[in-house]
Design a protein around this nucleic acid. Structure first.
Length: 320
DNA sequence: CCCTGTTTAGCGTCGA
DNA sequence: TCGACGCTAAACAGGG
């Protein structure tokens, strides 16, 4: 199979499904939620391949957002003009890619139908979620807790502030992005968070999310290309082959899913559920399974089994 | 009008 | 072989 050039994959389809690409984009944002346009932007900035045929893949991507329960829609606040809603990852979509392949999930993520804890009606669900979020936020504020970059969902969960979600920008793109010491995100953020957190942290990922410098174009990527992880040079994009979405129970900041799913409020209530930590800490031993470069199709080039993640996210409903 | 979002359908690939 | 999953196309509705 053709091995993509060293510096560019512009003509090669990245070894990631739209679901994983979308998840990456969402997770790269400080708020853990992005409007559709920003998701497009993220993907196009990062993967030259997707700068073409936009009509095609964007349609597919939209399809995925609507079709997959792992994505939840978060409405804009009235004072936030703009088109479309924000999209976030469902709290329990954690181990979708546990098998290490980002082309094919082991199971499709589906929201649990009989979530006894959750309200039955969508409307109630949204309200419920909002309440939950409020509670957590206020609790957080009260304790002066430093929001560990992730989300309020991590609250209650014994999680060290150093926790880094697999989708965390650190894991995803940190490789080639040398964040200029805590670049403030605020000023460059084109789209205000739907539900800004009190402590909108500005750690690493901050500068990336939406207004991040065109890293790719800036040469950071093409020149770097240092990583040789499974799948080969895709590391150049800084896309973590492994750490991506696995067990992380991260969440969009204060999501208020408006998905028309009847019982669309699964995991949230179960917040205090322990998360299969590990992942984040999983040694960066992205074993260079090298062998073959992922060519989108055919072989997912299962990039490494290194991320031994014993516990298959329990509460994540990988029903299907 | 364009973008966003939903839904349906068909086809190819992969894994059990 | 079959079911699940992913990709693509397309139609349609609603909103800015």
């Amino acid at each position: 199979m053709p091995r993509p050039g060293r510096n560019t994959y512009s003509d090669q389809k990245p070894p990631y499904s739209y679901i994983s690409l979308t998840a990456m984009a969402i997770q790269s944002s400080p708020e853990k939620m992005l409007p559709l346009s920003e998701i497009y932007k993220f993907i196009m900035d990062r993967f030259p391949y997707y700068r073409e045929n936009t009509q095609r893949w964007q349609n597919s991507l939209r399809h995925n957002l609507s079709f997959n329960d792992c994505f939840i829609k978060i409405p804009r606040r009235p004072d936030q003009p703009g088109k479309g809603s924000f999209w976030a990852l469902h709290p329990s979509c954690g181990d979708m890619f546990e098998n290490g392949s980002f082309l094919r999930r082991r199971k499709r993520f589906k929201v649990l139908k009989s979530e006894h804890l959750a309200p039955s009606k969508p409307a109630d669900a949204a309200q419920y979620l909002q309440q939950q979020a409020k509670l957590r936020l206020s609790a957080l504020a009260a304790t002066g807790t430093h929001l560990p970059q992730m989300s309020t969902y991590n609250l209650g969960v014994s999680q060290p502030s150093s926790f880094k979600h697999p989708f965390a920008i650190e894991n995803i793109i940190a490789r080639e992005y040398k964040m200029p010491g805590g670049l403030a995100f605020s000023t460059m953020q084109p789209v205000p968070a739907a539900y800004p957190l009190p402590n909108q942290l500005t750690t690493v990922g901050s500068s990336i999310g939406t207004g991040w410098p065109h890293v790719y174009g800036s040469g950071v990527i093409d020149t770097a290309t240092p990583i040789s992880m499974a799948g080969g040079e895709y590391g150049a994009y800084g896309v973590p082959i492994k750490p991506l979405c696995h067990g992380g129970q991260t969440l969009p900041a204060i999501p208020v899913p408006i998905k028309p799913t009847p019982a669309a409020v699964p995991a949230l209530p179960a917040l205090p559920a322990p998360i299969p930590t590990i992942l984040s800490n999983s040694p960066p031993s992205l074993s260079p399974t090298s062998s073959q470069t992922a060519t989108s199709q055919s072989s997912p080039a299962t990039p490494s089994e290194t991320l031994t993640s014993p516990a298959p996210a329990l509460h994540s409903v990988a029903v299907h």
